[in-house]
Design a protein around this nucleic acid. Sequence first.
DNA 1: AGAAATAAAATTGTATGCAAAAATGGTTTA
DNA 2: TAAACCATTTTTGCATACAATTTTATTTCT
Lengths: 226, 226
Amino acid sequence: MPHTLRQKIADLVLRGELKPGDRLDEHSLAEQFGVSRTPVREAIRQLGASGLVEIRPRRSAVVRSFDQAELNEAFEAMGEIEAICASRAAVRMNDAERLRLRALIATSEDISARTDRSAALEMDFEFHGLLHDASRNWMLKAVAEETRLKITPYSAALYTMEGYNADLDRPHRQHAAIAAAVLAGEAERAGMLMREHIAQALISLQKFFEDTAAQSDAPKVKGNTR
Amino acid sequence: MPHTLRQKIADLVLRGELKPGDRLDEHSLAEQFGVSRTPVREAIRQLGASGLVEIRPRRSAVVRSFDQAELNEAFEAMGEIEAICASRAAVRMNDAERLRLRALIATSEDISARTDRSAALEMDFEFHGLLHDASRNWMLKAVAEETRLKITPYSAALYTMEGYNADLDRPHRQHAAIAAAVLAGEAERAGMLMREHIAQALISLQKFFEDTAAQSDAPKVKGNTR
DNA sequence: AGAAATAAAATTGTATGCAAAAATGGTTTA
DNA sequence: TAAACCATTTTTGCATACAATTTTATTTCT
């Protein structure tokens, strides 16, 4: 895990320290990480190409923000892509991965019961990551994870926000159902369940935004603030 | 079309002046475009994040190259993504786009008859681009075009290489069939035809590589050269 | 002659400086 | 009071310089 500067800056966004719309000041980032502006600029440009931040000539880069329509489209796209990964995984998953998938679901059961939000977020990453790997297609995996990355500032909020009591059990049950289909080799069904899973995530997210519209530290959809 | 430096360097790759495996020398690129190394480096990093070039610490960036397995996976992924775009387009395309699609196919008919390779390449871009737009989903469009970008150094060779007599009529007929399905609103069928179209492109490409294995200026699959 | 070792050249990574543009703040004016 | 104007400060874009590393060329040794 060589923590590149790009990764460090991305982490600021993924960990929620920088929220959609926030500016990335080259000078302060440089100071914060003990380097000069040059490597910071290069890292920011890379994040711009990955779609995590928005780069505007002569103006500070800002964390990419989506309006409602863009969020809907992003989730629709991710649903399709994840569905493809899942159906491929159902046909191609190897024995080691099958074992790991079973273990993951068992752990997830426990996490859900304990209502451990941060563990649940990590579990979510691992579950989907495993399916990406099992799709036996590096580009599918790359596409899925790039897409996931872009909306993380929003989707992670579901797990991250303290005090927000979204249901942790529903995503767990959906993961379990998908895993069952994958393990049974039912490609079509795995894809369908995955699509529904992502669609459900969008609905939860929209509900979350309504519920927390008052709170100030939640990521806002574009046009909501200032 | 504000030709950014990033775009200019990308064009070198897309136009085939830089082939997979070729090094991108910061100094000579800087000289070539009349700027210093700093903006060149930033552009290269961006292209690295887009997956068009490969960046290795302390070593020159090189144009991304794929081995046979990676190419297969890339085309499989692209087939799925383009299929989704096509089926969405079949349901969501508006009247202006329908008109344009018809015109495109008519022009394509002519291009195919005249065996105009460079026009055919442009047509290919426009056809798929139109479907991306008509999917009414910016992220799907972004994903499709990023994926397409990565394999362009290989797929464009089919059209670019002088003297290689690949069939121009087949892709045209496939485009026409897809267009018909889209215009008829047959989402399922449009997606299926698109998947087959991309699969066929891979087969043609593999054939192309076999045929031109001797020629030195064709892009090679990783491991073939040096 | 071929391989290994070594010296020279070329290339990348980063810091720094400066000009140009944009954001900020305060003053004036309607 | 609010808007418009102007000066100040901040921030970005780019060029340049230099150290660290890799690459290339040359020489030496077996």
